[in-house]
Design a protein around this nucleic acid. Structure first.
Lengths: 153, 153
DNA sequence: CCTATATCAGGGGAACTGACATAC
DNA sequence: CGTATGTCAGTTACCCTGATATAG
């Protein structure tokens, strides 16, 4: 039940989807950061590991596009993942501008590990929603996201 | 229709609500920042103006709690709003620790002005959703937000 | 020539932390 | 006394811009 203290946000904000989104995202990020922080992981690490696993040897530019992470930030995050032995950078012989990024066995294992932690966080985040409502929320967000897919890149 | 280029995000991410939320929020913030930027406004300005209008003369701490803005950041944002003549800070005689913050006529007019711009942005953001779906999304987000209302403060 | 890639340097807004003086 | 308020200094992760060297 909501706390008795009537510290509600202004009606204008509560009726503004962009405000609701950023505020809910802030709560989500706090939960994720707490859980990931204990493991020395940041969001970018998870996103990139997931992308490298799913899209196999891929260029850094492609990984960044798929995850919505800037190329600059991909460099820094991959440095850390490579240093930890979770991914490997190999020059691509077919296009010598590119690095072919591959996930290691340790990387795949670590991905499963942090994915389990992330699943716990989703549960805590969406606690007040039924399974059907969680699906509904997910589908609505995907629709919005896909609509804006071409806005950048 | 989604762009033909199959640059989709990893399935793991597309099925993770916290990732969908932060990513959608990023798009929303970009749209808001573009529109607000032309007017020299940031999100905090809008939130605080809305709170001061709705909750009348209020303390800075209360405004911050209601908007989910840290007290430190309330100080800085109110400095800018006061300098622009949109709000007025008066020492509260009943509790001399507090500032009583009031919206000015110019502030109320400016609030209506930027609220109209914000409404346009909501429309662009949620373009792919029907009116019923926008309501659904809004209600789901409010439920999640209210559930985590006591997490901080 | 123009575009794409990887990298680096750096900026900016937002969320947050810690400290402090003051007042309840 | 402990707690709340307003203020300030500084930190961090994230998002983004611009520049460069190199390769297509």
């Amino acid at each position: 039940m909501p706390p008795a203290t009537d510290n509600l946000a202004p009606a204008r904000l509560r009726a503004t989807p962009s405000w609701l989104l950023t505020h809910t995202a802030t709560h989500a990020n706090r939960l994720v950061a707490e859980r990931f922080g204990e493991m020395g992981v940041r969001r970018y690490h998870y996103a990139l590991l997931a992308a490298v696993e799913e899209f196999g040897p891929a260029s850094q530019a492609d990984l960044g596009r798929r995850c919505g992470i800037d190329r600059s930030d991909v460099v820094a995050a991959l440095n850390e993942l490579a240093e930890a032995g979770l991914v490997v950078r190999t020059p691509d012989p077919a296009d010598r501008r590119r690095n072919s990024v591959t996930i290691t066995d340790a990387g795949a294992a670590w991905l499963r590990h942090i994915a389990a932690a992330l699943a716990d966080v989703q549960d805590a985040l969406l606690a007040p929603l039924s399974a059907a409502e969680r699906d509904q929320l997910t589908r609505l967000l995907v629709r919005v996201l896909d609509h804006h897919a071409g806005d950048r890149d």
